[in-house]
Design a protein around this nucleic acid. Sequence first.
DNA 1: CAGAATCCGGTATGATACTG
DNA 2: CAGTATCATACCGGATTCTG
Lengths: 153, 153
Amino acid sequence: MFLFLRHMYVTNADNQVDKIAAAAQKILAIPESGPGLCPVRDILDRVGDKWSLFSILHLGSDGSLRFNELRKRIDGISQRMLTVTLRALEADGLVTRTVYAEVPPRVEYRLTELGHGLLGAVIEFGNWASQHAPAIAQARKTFAAREKVEVEN
Amino acid sequence: MFLFLRHMYVTNADNQVDKIAAAAQKILAIPESGPGLCPVRDILDRVGDKWSLFSILHLGSDGSLRFNELRKRIDGISQRMLTVTLRALEADGLVTRTVYAEVPPRVEYRLTELGHGLLGAVIEFGNWASQHAPAIAQARKTFAAREKVEVEN
DNA sequence: CAGAATCCGGTATGATACTG
DNA sequence: CAGTATCATACCGGATTCTG
C-alpha cells in the first residue's frame, strides 16, 4: 500500500513534469524570427522593466490616478521614467491616458480591460513568487557561502 | 431578463476587478525596503533578463542538457551570457550544475523542483501572453499611426 | 568541452533645467 | 500640473582571447 501510494505520487509528479515540458516546447516552437518575437519574451520585456510592474499594480489598486498621484505612490521613480513607462503602457493598449481641458491640466491614467488582464496574469505569477521567495533567498545564501569558501581557498 | 443578465455580467466583471485590486494592494503592502525587496519584482528581475526564460524553457523541455547543447538551442546567446545566466539560476536554486570527472569535461544542467515550479508559473503567464499578443500588436500599430500624424502636424 | 578574464559599446535609467 | 529636452552614467550584454 505504501509502495502503491508512493508510485502514484511519483507518477503524478512525472505527469506534471511532462505537461510542463510539453508546454515549454509549445512556446519554443513559436517562430522567434521577425519583429513579432516570442510573445512571452515580448510581454516579459514590457512588464519586466524597472517601473511597469508598480505602475500597473497601483493603477489596478486605485482604479484611476493622476500623474503626480502615481508619482508619489511609486517610491523612487523619476518624473522622466514615469512618463516613459506610462507612454509604453499606453502604446501597448494597457493604459488609457485622459487629458481634461482644465487649468491647471489634469491627466488621468487608468488600466484598460487588456491591462486588467495582464495585471491578473502578473498577480498569479506573483503568488508563486511570494510563496517561493523564502526558498530562493535561502538558496542564494547557501550559494554565496559556498562561493566564499572557494574564494578563500 | 436581458437587463438582468447584463447586470450579472457587469457585477461579475466588477467583482473580478475588485479581486484583482485587492490582490494588487496585497503585493504593494509588502515592505519593499531592505535587501529582500518585493518578491514579485525580484523574481521578475531574474526571469525577465535576456536569456533566463529560454534557458529555463529548454531545460524544462529537454530535461537535462550540457553546456554546449544548451548553447546550440538558444539562438544568439554568447558563451559568456550562457555562463552568467546559468550561474544566476544556480545561485537561486532553480538549476543544478553537475560536473562529471571526465576528459573532456562534461557538465550537465537540470531544473530543480523549484525551477520546475517557476517554469510552471512562467508558462501560465505565457498562456496569457500568447492569447493577447495580437491585441497588443494591434494597439502598438494604432498608437504608432497616431504618433506619426502628430509628428507630421 | 566548458569555461574565465578582459575590454568595449549601446541602452536603460537618472538628474537637471525649462515650459504650455 | 504634467510634462519635454538635454546631458550624464551605470550596467547589461557582446566580442575576443586565453586555459584546465
